[in-house]
Amino acid sequence: MSNFAGLAAYYSEFRPGIPPKVAQVLADAVAGEPHRTLLDLGTGTGQVIQALHKPFVDIIGADPDIEMLELAEKNCQPFASPGRIIRFFGASAESFAAPDGWRASLVTICRAFHWMEQSRVLASLEPIVHSGGAVAIFGDSSFWEASSEWKKGVRAVIQEFLGERRRAGGGVFSHHNRPYSEILAESPFHEVEEVTVPVRRTWTADSILGYLYSTSFAAPPLFGDRLSSFEARIREVLAQHSSSDTYEEDNEFLIRLGRRSS
């Protein structure tokens, strides 16, 4: 079963979208491509496509979770037009097969590379990406990587209910111990550039809980009949950090762009 089974609605509503500055970096990376095409692997509910659709004329999103894809189609349908094709494939990054003759100017993998067989996926992209194209692996930090006092409090409550180790659905999360830039550098897309885009967000207790329920480490099924107790405890801890139900977050997107040798 998918680590995100049943979480698509939470994901669509509560996961922060892709900031315009990140979308601009990605679009600029393939500005020289005359007929720009986009492949978004692990597309989820289509957040990358929603943010990045304007410069592209042919877009494919792929994800193995059918519930996610249904929402992605709904979310992205308004951006399709006679001059812009948007299609979705129910496939993992490892099993995705591009339509005959189709090539990507840009491949995006956002907040999903840690779930993939990384070297295998990058190798499989070599025949799909245009010679002047790029692969972008990017994401921001999750709440698990606590960078503020209120986030530390949230993580402590999760650990109180589910144990010290980060969950991943029915199992535990296996951390990758190598920077993604190193993995890219060993792939066909070995010319690597890193770009960092800071982002500041404001949360409420409701949006924090919605975000947590979209994750593999705090999905509602993990709590069983203790879900209401978990929610009450989160609200209690958050209230210790704000009297106005507002919680500021400083985060950043780290973008790794990989290309073939020029």
Rank of each mutant, 00 (worst) to 15 (best):
I86S: 05
L106T: 00
A93N: 07
I137N: 06
S119E: 15
V154T: 04
V157K: 08
E236G: 03
A9I: 11
V22W: 09
I60P: 00
I158L: 14
D28K: 10
L162I: 06
F138V: 04
P19V: 10
I158T: 05
P55A: 01
I234Y: 03
F143Q: 07
E160R: 10
F253S: 02
G153H: 11
S12D: 15
K151H: 15
P220D: 08
S174V: 14
L122S: 04
A9E: 14
F79L: 13
A205M: 09
G258D: 05
R256C: 12
S147M: 11
A232M: 13
E33Y: 03
P20A: 15
Q159D: 05
I59V: 15
R111I: 08
L254T: 15
P19K: 06
D65F: 01
E94S: 02
G133K: 00
A205N: 04
F56K: 01
Q77R: 15
A93F: 03
K74L: 13
S216Q: 07
D225M: 07
A27R: 00
L41Y: 08
A27K: 06
G169C: 04
R233C: 03
I208K: 07
E149M: 06
G46Q: 04
F143E: 04
P198Q: 11
V121D: 01
V192T: 06
P64T: 08
C76A: 10
Q118D: 06
F223P: 05
L227E: 10
P220F: 08
K21I: 02
E186L: 09
E33F: 03
L257T: 04
D245W: 02
E126K: 15
S95F: 02
V237N: 10
G139F: 05
G171F: 11
L254M: 15
T202Y: 11
V195M: 02
R165L: 12
G83K: 12
A146W: 06
V22G: 06
A29E: 07
V237Y: 04
P34E: 05
L125P: 00
G258I: 02
G224M: 04
L238H: 04
T202H: 10
R166S: 02
L222A: 12
S207N: 08
R201T: 14
G258M: 01
I158P: 07
V22P: 00
A98N: 02
G32M: 03
R226Y: 05
A134C: 03
H130V: 11
H175G: 10
V135I: 09
R167N: 08
F89G: 05
A97T: 15
R178Y: 09
V199Y: 03
P20H: 13
S243A: 14
